[in-house]
Amino acid sequence: MSEPSPERSQAAQDRMVRLAGEDLRVVVPSSHFFRGAIASWKDIWDHRELWWLLVKRELKARYKDSTLGFLWTLIRPLVQLLIYYFAIGEILGASRAIENFGIYVFAGLTAWGLFNEIIASSTGSIVGNSGIIKKVYLPREIFPLAAAGAAFINFCAQMVVLFAGAIIISGIHIPSVVTYVPLSIILILVWGIAAGLFLAAVNVYLRDVQYLVEVTLLIGMWLCPIVYSYSMVVDAAPKWLAELYILNPMANAVLGFQAGVWAPSTTSAALPDNLISSMLIFIGIGIVLILLAQRYFAKAQRNFAQEL
């Protein structure tokens, strides 16, 4: 092995002297609620380029060694839409109860799929990146946020298929799209990110959480009006239970997304009163939950390296 040149040795010594003269910097996030939250989010913003690289890595890893690659993101929802429209809607007769059943159920599944993927991928994001976390310091929140970013890009691809199918099969009402769809997406994102940050931190200490999340998400899908309509809940359940049902933020998000995309000629699936107001309230609650989840994450991450 060749000896380093005198110039390089002198440069290395100069760097060591310069670093030795600097004050030590604390890299553990501050536990102060407001100052710590501002500093943490600023640190995340400063690493936004790294966040985007992690998002792209998530997407590439999903279709690694695949010939069609990202096209599978379009093929899979297209096949699902055809199955719901022909097999379940027309052959099994589900469209008799809910008009344009294929669009209705696919809209609900697309909205729920975004939330489901954010939660499922965020929960294991810290454990899955343990090698990086144990070697270098960076804002660890970036890993669940990258999982959420990848889930959102997949959702956008599915939404292209959904809108194309809706235009061909039933048509869409532009004012409804503009009113309901953005609110529904924001509602799903804020609650998904809040839950993802919290669960990603808890999963480091309790590895059973990721399996509990899978079961909870399976149950949660059936607590949203995806394969049945909200009007069925109102007709079949007591009034107090129907009112309790609509307190589910994801039920509001799914209903809002369906209201924007699904355009029946009848009132076969009525919407709850004040749906827009409810979504706005839940968005506000979700933003508060993001702040609380990030503060818990900042406290819990102090021992991530030891636990991993």
Rank of each mutant, 00 (worst) to 15 (best):
A94P: 04
N303F: 02
P77T: 11
I167S: 06
P175W: 05
V27H: 05
S231D: 10
N274G: 09
W45M: 14
G131Y: 03
I226P: 06
P6C: 05
M250E: 09
L212H: 02
L24Y: 06
A148P: 01
R57F: 11
P77Q: 10
I133V: 15
S268T: 15
R295F: 03
L138N: 15
F304H: 08
I174N: 00
L24P: 13
F155H: 06
Y84F: 07
L189Y: 04
P4M: 03
I285R: 08
S130H: 07
I75V: 15
P175G: 11
F198N: 01
H47C: 03
G124M: 03
E22H: 07
I226G: 09
M279N: 10
A253C: 11
G149M: 10
W52Y: 14
M16G: 09
G124V: 02
M159R: 00
D65I: 08
E22T: 08
E58S: 01
S95F: 01
R57E: 12
A157V: 06
V27P: 01
V55D: 05
L206G: 02
N274L: 05
L271V: 12
P29T: 04
L280N: 10
L187E: 04
R96A: 12
A150I: 11
L275V: 07
N248V: 13
V234P: 00
E307K: 08
R140S: 11
S31P: 13
F297C: 07
P175A: 07
A37C: 12
A237L: 08
N303M: 04
I103F: 01
V190Y: 05
G21H: 02
N303E: 07
M250H: 02
A194V: 01
F155P: 05
N154Y: 12
V209M: 05
L206I: 15
A259R: 00
L74A: 15
I133T: 03
I126Y: 03
L289M: 14
I174T: 13
A253P: 08
R48G: 12
A120R: 01
F106D: 08
G108Y: 02
I285M: 02
N203Q: 05
T73Q: 12
A107K: 04
V215I: 14
G36N: 06
V213D: 09
V26E: 11
F70L: 11
A194T: 08
I98D: 01
W51Q: 11
L92Y: 09
I38N: 04
I186R: 00
K60E: 02
I168F: 06
A263H: 04
I142N: 14
T216S: 15
V127Y: 09
A11P: 09
I142D: 13
L74I: 15
K42A: 05
G89F: 03
A120E: 03
L114Q: 04
F282V: 10
L74C: 09
V105D: 00
K42E: 12
D208K: 06
L289D: 08
I88K: 00
A195L: 14
D43I: 00
